[in-house]
């Protein structure tokens, strides 16, 4: 026991004199929590399956049957086949669901009190939020990858220009971060799982239908089109369709990207603020 106490004191001394938490403590905290959440994720069939279930079902049932009606490349789906046309929207739906389920990690840790273990550890409070956000993001990306692969198997093809592909991933990142922020805010405010889970139900379908995920904007009734323009998903789909699958971009990257960046900043800001408030006021 003597050795361990001395080693422990070395650890303290290494950080002694620093009154505030260090960068090392921030980075270590984020990594530790990311690692823990990913470990739990690997063991949770429910979370992986629950996120992938809906988009896969959409791709198989809707994509294949609708794709049969809208044969080949038509003016309905400018310059790509229908599977390639709907894959971006379903990819984003997966990311959205993953972000929301990632938020349940924070919510669960907050309501059960697990978060207290982190809050009294020598880890900045920001690390608790960033740890959760980074694991949400990782989960979203892994699952988006599954959708890309499934699309390929169903014949979506893929744009092999590396710059454009990386650009598409960045759009995916920015979009997902926006919802990770919103999910963190909801998880910081929600009183329990029930109220949080209604959020998934409320967000999922409108995000899909009130966007250009399944059909072009110009073919939509005006009211729906207006609502679609208020949905950040529309801009992300527009960009990703072009960048990943080489489709004709309807709105234009120069609008898509600023809108998505603004959405990300707002979402993250909202998440940070709500989280800060939840850890400084006891439950």
């Amino acid at each position: 026991m003597a050795v361990t106490v001395e080693q422990r004191l070395d650890t303290i001394n290494g950080l002694a004199g620093k009154r505030s938490e260090t960068w090392r403590e921030l980075a270590g905290g984020v990594y530790t929590l990311w690692r823990k959440h990913m470990k739990k994720f690997r063991r949770s069939v429910m979370e992986i399956g629950g996120t992938l279930f809906t988009p896969i079902l959409w791709m198989l049932l809707f994509g294949l049957s609708m794709g049969g009606m809208v044969k080949g490349i038509s003016d309905f789906t400018p310059s790509v086949n229908y599977i390639a046309y709907i894959t971006p929207g379903l990819m984003l739906l997966t990311c959205l669901t993953a972000a929301i389920l990632g938020g349940t990690t924070l919510l669960m840790e907050r309501t059960t009190g697990i978060i207290k273990e982190y809050l009294i550890a020598p880890v900045p409070r920001l690390a608790v939020l960033l740890g959760t956000m980074s694991s949400s993001l990782t989960k979203a990306f892994l699952q988006a990858l599954v959708i890309i692969v499934l699309g390929l198997l169903l014949g979506s093809g893929l744009n092999l220009n590396p710059l454009e592909f990386v650009g598409g991933l960045l759009v995916l990142l920015v979009y997902t971060l926006g919802f990770v922020g919103i999910a963190s805010a909801a998880a910081s405010k929600a009183r329990g799982m029930e109220s949080y889970h209604t959020l998934i139900g409320v967000l999922n379908l409108p995000v899909l239908f009130l966007s250009n995920a399944l059909y072009p904007l110009e073919k939509m009734p005006v009211v729906l089109a207006v609502l679609a323009y208020l949905n950040p998903t529309t801009y992300a789909i527009d960009a990703i369709r072009g960048l990943f699958y080489g489709a004709t971009i309807e709105i234009g990257l120069w609008i898509d990207i600023p809108v998505l960046l603004a959405f990300m900043v707002l979402g993250l800001w909202y998440g940070f603020r709500a989280f800060q408030k939840s850890v400084t006021t006891p439950n």
Partner: peptide
Amino acid sequence: DALDTHGRLYHLPKAL
């Protein structure tokens, strides 16, 4: 896992 995560949160060396 619980003990390991805890030790990591406090930046303890792995051997310790």
